[in-house]
Design a protein around this nucleic acid. Structure first.
Lengths: 147, 147
DNA sequence: TCTAAGTATACAAAGTTAGTCAACAATGTC
DNA sequence: GACATTGTTGACTAACTTTGTATACTTAGA
């Protein structure tokens, strides 16, 4: 049930972008540095995000990335779907024809349940809420150092 | 978020075993045939199930596999855990030290939520319930042919 | 026209998965 | 006790996926 680094890094990159979106386009290079991902690998992860319209790019000097939609309109389920494909743990969930048992397989039903549950969790969370959570966590940490 | 074939085949094999458990030990060979898995590969999948006590083996002629516990005492979460390891989608969920952001990473919190949800679904379902479901599905299918 | 950015494609190293082969161990039956 | 039947184990490998790197290219602002 592992996620690939695509989804992990990509999600973090998008959150990083959202967190720094106030001050104009955010350079990939800066995201790469802050998130400890190589610039060249990050380029691969950003491409599908741009393709899906979650991110827009601005070329040339002073260019960079901006969100393609408002953060409140970006569901985390969509982000993971774009980066990683379906969250179905097994092929037959999305494509029943790949297994001739699908119609009468109780095990498949379990995988379907799991996919639906996972999607539910991620669909109920937007990037804007992730930004809030992240800010809150950083504040709390800062306070802890202060004390 | 893919499951490996270990978990898929292994789960099906265990359900198959539970379904045919009435008439004494079930031969691996028969499970392999019914489930379309090579005998030699299935042997590898069964090994950890035996190790975890979910299955017991009987050698020699008329031998085979039997359940190591009552089906009602076998949670599906345990089955998947034995076959596949933790359901955590990301390493840092079970082992926060693998990433120095863990303490202040909102993304990690999301992965934790997902793991807990998945575990919840699978922990609330026993092998006995899977057997019931499977029988019901087969009955329903038989009826459909009859009509 | 120079430079700072993103874009695209090809390639490759490393690791994982899925599966086979082959020798072995235990046990019931005749 | 010989033999057939069943499970056990470990070595090995082919294929695939992941995780990157390298390189050449495009766009656009100063």
């Amino acid at each position: 049930m592992k996620l690939s680094t695509r989804a992990r890094y990509g999600t973090r990159a998008l959150l990083d972008l959202a967190l720094h979106a106030d001050s104009g386009p955010v350079r990939l290079k800066d995201i790469a540095r802050r998130q400890d991902v190589s610039l060249q690998y990050l380029e691969h992860l950003v491409a599908p995000l741009i393709g899906a319209g979650l991110v827009s790019s601005i070329r040339g000097p002073r260019g960079g990335l901006v969100l393609g939609k408002r953060a409140g309109e970006i569901k985390m389920s969509q982000v993971v779907e774009v980066l990683e494909g379906s969250t179905a743990p097994v092929e037959c969930v999305t494509n029943p024809d790949t297994c001739n048992r699908s119609a009468t397989c109780a095990v498949r039903d379990l995988w379907v349940e799991i996919k639906d549950t996972v999607d539910g969790v991620m669909a109920s969370l937007t990037l804007a809420e992730m930004v809030e959570r992240q800010k809150k966590k950083e504040e709390t940490k800062a306070e802890m150092y202060f004390i």
